[in-house]
Design a protein around this nucleic acid. Sequence first.
DNA 1: GCCGTTTTCGGCCCGACTGTTTTCAGTCG
Length: 573
Amino acid sequence: MSKIKNSEISAILYEMADLLEIKGVQFKPRAYRRAAQTIETLPEDVKLIYERGELQKIPGIGSSIASKIQEIIETGSLTYLEELREELPQGLRELMEIEGLGPKSALKLNKKLKISNIDELESAARQGKIRELEGFGKKSEENILQSIEMYRSAQERFLLGYALPIAKEIEKKLNESKVVGRISLAGSIRRRKETVSDIDILATSHEPSKTMNFFTQLSEVKRVLAKGKTKSTVVLTNNLQVDLRVVEEESFGLTFQYFTGSKEHNIRLRELALDKDWKLSEYGLFDKSTNKKIAGEKEEGIYEALGLNCIEPELRENRGEIEVALEGKLPHLIEYGEVKGDLHVHTVWSDGSHSIEDMAEAAKTLGYEYMAICDHSKTLQIAHGLDEEGPRKQIKEIEKLNRRMEGLTILSGIEVNIDSNGKLDIKDDMLKDLDVVVASVHSSFKQPEKKMTERVLTAVHNDYVNIIGHPTGRIINKREPCQIDLPKVFEVATELGVFMEINAFPNRLDLSDSNCFKSRDYGTKILIGTDAHHRDHLRYMKLGVATARRGWLEKKDVINTLNLRKLKKLLGS
DNA sequence: GCCGTTTTCGGCCCGACTGTTTTCAGTCG
């Protein structure tokens, strides 16, 4: 039996959906896409579900897709997919990557001009061949060329930590322009997804065309993709796409709900509405027969009307939140203001930019009660890691600072390195005198799952380790998470009173939201740490809280919501 | 291909914008 990951299964199903769509098959693409999406975000290994014979219990998976998943797990491939690949021209999926090209256009370009990749598409457009085709014109040819340029420069999704400040800046400019009334960020950025492909903004305005003019003429705008009275789309000089929609005051709430998504969440809501013979659109919730508006003024209204508690934006991913809301059992998510301190902070003692005191002052301005200094240990020479005696000297310095510091307690700590066999590079004799010990993997990320799991478990078993830092080692857009049996780690860590980190650094967010979701099954306690190397990095905490919220975590799950006394008791320091 | 507290058959979310035509198909979210 092949060892296949959920992501590989979902990739096959996504390809099935695309190929069937190109073929012009109705409805099946949606079914495959839904199944792929569900599997992609499933916290459990599909193979395990298959072994229990419970594939068809997964929503969106019936007998047909279940047997295809079985084939994929057993053989590593799918005959039906191979046949479709044979049958259809190569390269159409690549063409559909170009903004504005869907299955119909891709097929036509392939049939009439024998285009099967983006390079050939570009060449044909440059030679003016595309404008000759029926259904295409000069404008579509120009758009294709521009979209190819965009495609090539924007291969990666944008980190939330990068896009969010930009989104807020544009929101601010629109606000100050006086051409809008209410305004708010919507879409994936409001749901605080770890990466976003665009920024959605929703506003009300008495002068929609003025608003759109102002928006499309912002200094950051490189290209205007669409401009209408209610909706405009632009691309910024940094290649971020921004959508602005202008709606009537009385439908703001519902449109806000609609454009916050996710798409899958909304489809599920519309299905609920249909069950009641209502129609849900971005303009409101209507009775299908009388066309009378049932809800629409406020976002909460639509959830109430459908018999649900209002669902926090971070939960709206159709991962079961609607079913839970129907039962009135939504989690009470950790709030952004409930964090009382940061336990993963670096200073000039290793590779940080500021002194302990500067970092402490910065932490105070955030209203924190405590902060732990966790500089790197000696193995990380590139980060000027502390040697065996380093922590001893640092403890003295911290004691001195604590005597004159008011309103904030500095805890002593270290981010100790886990070597390839699970050994730590600072002796227990030293670790035992520190308040906080974070143990992290910084090398040999490609070890096989068994080895990596044993390695981390060895660290978990150390009597003085409190926290496992960035547990999967992933760097978003750069490095895949390591192969590790997280459920096993969660189980043992929980048993031994070791906590798992949500590293809040923008390109880490590790544990990820779905791993947090899984950790709840084991009662695992979580630390949200920023891994700050600069005082400005302390603000990344809110990205970590967003990840926790997206992972359905509550205040009780997160140890740095505790006050200092309770935290110290928990850490045994 | 999935799904069902009207249904095991017959539905499947819905509307804006663009470009090309001249009433609409394709694409997107």
